[in-house]
C-alpha cells in the first residue's frame, strides 16, 4: 500500500518527514541499513527521483550516511537523533499553538487545558 500523502504539499517534504519519524521512533534503528531508493519509492508509490532527493537531504543533515558496501545507514549519533526528535516535536507544538490561537485561546488558557488533558490521560 502506498504511503498516505497530502495532495496539497510537496511530496518531497512529506517523505522527508516520514522517514525522519521512522528514524526517531526506531522503525529504522541507529546503524541499520535503510532500503534502496527504488525499494522505498515503490513502497511509498512515489517517483524515484523525488525519493532520491529526500534521502540526499537526510544525508545532508547527517541523519543517514552512505556506506560504500551497504548502501545508506542510519546515523549512530544518538544526539543527532534526539535533536531531530525534539525538532519534530517543536513543529507539532507550534502547529498546535497556531490552531489554538485561531480558535481564540490565549497562552494561559492553552497551558491549563493542555495540563488537564495530559493529566486526564494518565488517570484513564
Amino acid at each position: 500500500m502506498a504511503w498516505n500523502l497530502d495532495s496539497d504539499r510537496p511530496i518531497y517534504a512529506q517523505i522527508l518527514e516520514r522517514i525522519e519519524i521512522q528514524i526517531v521512533s526506531g522503525v529504522y534503528k541507529p546503524g541499520e541499513k535503510i532500503p534502496s531508493v527504488r525499494e522505498l519509492a515503490a513502497e511509498a508509490g512515489v517517483n524515484p527521483n523525488t525519493m532520491q532527493r529526500a534521502l540526499a537531504e537526510l544525508e545532508r543533515h547527517g541523519l543517514v550516511s552512505t556506506q560504500r558496501t551497504s548502501g545508506r545507514v542510519v546515523t549512530e549519533d544518538m544526539n543527532m537523533i534526539k535533536e531531530t526528535r525534539n525538532m519534530l516535536a517543536k513543529e507539532q507544538i507550534q502547529e498546535f499553538i497556531q490552531r489554538m490561537r485561531e480558535l481564540g485561546f490565549e497562552k494561559e488558557e492553552i497551558l491549563t487545558l493542555l495540563k488537564s488533558e495530559a493529566g486526564g490521560e494518565k488517570n484513564e
Binding site: S7, D8, R9, P10, I11, Y12, N47, T50
Partner: peptide, 15 residues
C-alpha cells in the same frame, strides 16, 4: 515539475 506546481500553487496537479 509536480513539485513546482505543489509548491507554487499549493495544490495537487489534479486540483
Amino acid at each position: 515539475t509536480v513539485e513546482e506546481i505543489r509548491e507554487e500553487k499549493g495544490k495537487s496537479v489534479d486540483a
